[in-house]
Design a protein around this nucleic acid. Structure first.
Lengths: 119, 119
DNA sequence: TAATAAATTAGCTCAAAAGCTAAACATAAT
DNA sequence: ATTATGTTTAGCTTTTGAGCTAATTTATTA
């Protein structure tokens, strides 16, 4: 559950894909395997890296092992990341739709921007 | 500036440390080197990885090359991360201090929680 | 109890990445 | 012009990590 392990785990495309797959709920290992062209042991190894990082947990049901995303671990990354993001954009709300064409172009630089002052 | 390059870049401790060092403003390469026990070329290479990922930019002033954090690039990671975080905690505000002992323990699971409905 | 299926572990190869020293490059100062 | 300083590039070694197949483990079913 260290930032080291978490950020390393996320630095691999297959592992990011697994995390995305588990976003809406648990899934047995075999269903995860199916989504890849890699051999099962390769993905099994990725799963164990995710588990060691605390990013997933497992439960066994009969012969199946269900993997679930441990969103708490992702919070660690968010917590590291948040203070590094760009400062709040002074214009929080975009101009109303009808006036958009004439309104100055204001780029919302960061999805968390409008919340930063509350953080 | 791909999520692939950004997340790989962040998966190294020295590079995360560099990012943190640049949080409050630019810094010449030599000042960055000084903060590490590694040889200068090693850190120089880390800087180039960060640059290739779009996480830093450089400007030269005389013999010095200043590195600056490109916070925009960090947004890409935040944007990937955000939808994966735990759902909003229904109790946004903790109980007032005097009542904390008696109030039910509510764990704020995610620093972005209270903003999610606005996102 | 043997066979089957899900999943992991073992053991290997290969590529990527981190580290080093030495050399080269770029600018400034003497 | 030469020297000095900041920084990167070249070239190398070593470690780490991703991928594979084969073997093993665990649990179910015939």
């Amino acid at each position: 559950m260290t930032i080291e392990a978490i950020s390393k785990a996320i630095g691999d495309e297959s592992r990011r894909k697994i995390i995305e797959m588990l976003k809406d709920g648990e899934m047995p290992a075999s269903s995860i395997f199916d989504q890849f062209d890699y051999a099962a042991p390769t993905i099994s190894r990725h799963l164990s890296v995710l588990k060691e990082a605390g990013l997933v947990t497992t439960r066994r049901n009969g012969v199946f092992i269900y993997y679930a995303l441990e969103k708490e671990a992702l919070n660690q990354l968010a917590t590291w990341l948040y203070p590094l993001l760009p400062p709040t954009n002074p214009v929080a709300k975009p101009a109303p739709k009808e006036r958009v064409a004439r309104a100055p172009k204001v780029k919302i630089e960061n999805p968390f921007d409008k919340f930063q002052s509350e953080f």
